[in-house]
């Protein structure tokens, strides 16, 4: 899973010489490490991106979490539970990566719970059937893998290394999603209809996961110059479409896009227009599940308050500070 980058940024105003040396290191393919000099804007952009990414993992536990208890076999239940658990683990790596830049987990969580920090828009859509577990695994994690494979090459060392670990696990997530959809597509007519319905609902939101079109993506230029991103939103989106369309069509599933066509000259599958109004609407908080997702995170946080207080009190009494919190 991942968070799209959407905020505007200021021009860097750091010392020109240091900046030139920093940019030369990035151009030479070196990794920037926590103690190294970096422009303030690079640090800020990274904290924003990494914490959004961490929040996306943690909020991303919720839609699939709904189906852990309903998974239709013990094997599916174990796999789904392990997958959602992995996402918690990814959140944990990523919060740690952001901490190397001076952010604290408490600050980051506070920004999430007060609605100031973003997380991936995709999790503001509801999971309505078992087939959604398949589509989320295949499409949503498939999209995340493309983005994260790119970010594994990011110039900031801790982020890049977190991405390498995460991508390895995401590949299993995508395969479990594929396996669910294949099973449904060759199952009873009702099961196949369930898979089709899930594809209808998730296809467009998944395409939006790559962020706004390049013509409307103000961060991309500097993120690419500083080696945080190495591909544009549209490039990644096109790779994703080209990968997914033939695979899902081969199962007899149809895309909810009457304009979808194959362009032999470019070798690309071309989709109809994406509804960017919907994208911005959901980002602003008017998606189908924004309130529920944030509400669930807040409830977990508030319900857990007494537990965290007890841990702190116990640690203090037993001089075990930092052992637990």
């Amino acid at each position: 899973m991942y968070g799209a980058t959407i905020d505007l940024m200021d021009d860097p105003r750091d010392d020109a010489e240091k900046l030139a040396a920093f940019e030369a290191r990035i151009a030479a393919g070196e990794k920037i490490e926590p103690g190294d000099w970096m422009p303030e804007e690079y640090r800020k952009q990274l904290i924003r991106m990494i914490s959004q990414h961490a929040h996306s993992e943690v909020v991303g536990m919720l839609p699939e979490g709904t189906y852990i208890t309903k998974a239709p076999s013990l094997r599916r239940k174990l796999i789904l539970l392990a997958k959602v658990q992995d996402e918690g683990g990814h959140g944990q790596y990523l919060y740690h990566a952001a901490e190397t830049l001076g952010a604290t987990r408490e600050e980051m969580l506070d920004l999430l719970l007060t609605g100031k920090a973003k997380y991936s828009n995709i999790f503001n859509y509801p999971a309505l059937s078992w087939a959604d577990m398949g589509i989320i695994g295949w499409l949503v994690d498939g999209a995340a893998i493309l983005n994260q494979t790119m970010l594994a090459k990011a110039s900031y060392g801790p982020y890049s290394r977190a991405m390498i670990r995460i991508c390895a696990e995401e590949n299993f997530h995508m395969r479990q999603g594929q396996d669910i959809i294949i099973t449904l597509a060759i199952g009873t007519p009702e099961q196949k209809a369930m898979a089709q319905d899930a594809l209808n609902r998730w296809w467009w939101p998944t395409l939006m996961m790559f962020g706004p079109p390049d013509t409307d993506s103000p961060n991309s230029t500097v993120l690419i110059r500083w080696g945080i991103k190495t591909k544009t939103n549209d490039e990644l989106r096109q790779t994703f479409i080209n990968q997914m369309v033939p695979e899902l069509q081969s199962l007899g599933l149809e895309f909810p896009d009457p304009d979808l066509l194959y362009d032999a000259e470019s070798g690309n599958w071309i989709t109809g227009p994406i509804d960017w109004d919907e994208f911005w609407r959901v980002i602003r908080g008017d998606g189908p599940m924004n309130k529920e997702r944030l509400g669930a995170r807040r409830a977990a946080h508030e319900d857990g308050q007494w537990v965290r207080e007890a841990l702190a009190a116990y640690a203090e009494k037993h001089e075990m500070t930092s052992a637990v919190l």
Partner: peptide, 18 residues
């Protein structure tokens, strides 16, 4: 398994799921 995603700290989302 009902706790996964709703535990009081992230570390327990992971540990209790385990």
């Amino acid at each position: 398994s009902e706790w996964c995603g709703h535990a009081p700290i992230l570390e327990e989302d992971i540990a209790f799921a385990n």
